[in-house]
Amino acid sequence: MKIYATDRDGKEIEIEGREGWTIMEMLRDAGLPVAAECGGACACATCQVYVEDGWYEKLTPPADMEVDMLDMALAVEPNSRLSCQLVCSEELDGIKVTLAPE
């Protein structure tokens, strides 16, 4: 599967997704500057991404814990998600995300 990630300079890169990894892990593995301070525990909101091009609606809706954490994030938009809570699978092949500002 492929992930299309746009960094904070507007540059899009293609990442080969690994089934079962989170999108946060894939973004970091690809060298993108995602802080992910809490290490993927849904406890810090520093891995926020905007899910683009209609992909937001295709995702499993955020759990209460993620909604709570997004409350503490900056620059939250209706298509904001925490990338540590998005697990790569074939259904997400081609998903487009943009890194939220730091």
Partner: peptide
Amino acid sequence: IHHRDGFR
């Protein structure tokens, strides 16, 4: 102000 009409 808040980004949604819901609160933690």
